[in-house]
Design a binder for these strands. Sequence first.
DNA 1: AACATTGTTCGTAGTTTTGCGAACTACAAA
DNA 2: TTTGTAGTTCGCAAAACTACGAACAATGTT
Lengths: 110, 110
Amino acid sequence: MENDNNKEYSIDNEQLARFAKAMGHPARITILQFLASMDSCYFGDIHNELPIAKATVSQHLKELKDAGLIQGEIETPKVKYCINRQNWDKAQEYFNTFFATKKEKTGCCN
Amino acid sequence: MENDNNKEYSIDNEQLARFAKAMGHPARITILQFLASMDSCYFGDIHNELPIAKATVSQHLKELKDAGLIQGEIETPKVKYCINRQNWDKAQEYFNTFFATKKEKTGCCN
DNA sequence: AACATTGTTCGTAGTTTTGCGAACTACAAA
DNA sequence: TTTGTAGTTCGCAAAACTACGAACAATGTT
């Protein structure tokens, strides 16, 4: 009988991959780091930190928002962004757990 | 005068984004976790853990190798893969530092 | 009302990613 | 020599990503 393992990705792995993917671009890393270093700030300030057009910045912010890492709030006429601390902590935990993976098996080819 | 900040991504941010991007797919997370849990194993064992064709697995492995997170070694007629511990540790440090970002500024919109 | 400010959304273009089957390479065994 | 095993590479297609300028929306100012 074939080894019909659970051939799907676990929810945790999906979630971790999702966080990682959101962090998978230097502009988004820069945005996250910038936001993490303060309470909050406006779109314009973020745009000012980056070498790309505002339309592109807006897109990156949307992706980070979709991944749950940041949140935005309209403060007419500006838009204030900040880290979503809850998910930020969650992401940190995911990464910590991931890198803490211990060698539990002997390896399938020893 | 315009605030002509350093409009480029730092090497560190590029590197972190690179690692994150490599981790930005559930299949690759699964592979990394699998390899991290043992000393090493063969392509076939990895393929066996995943719900995708071998050609696709091979591609994912190549990406992880390019990102420096794993390494492969021919052991005719098989190919043995393992975590690149040096870069793994480096990645871990990058993520740790990233998530440890402290609020040093008051925020540009307080 | 006309204009300025702040961002988002749209349309477009080019690149990259993801995935697969088929073909191929390298070696070992029958 | 033919066959089998273990993976990689190729060629292709669909989807997603990255980026930009232009157009737009929402509000405030003159």
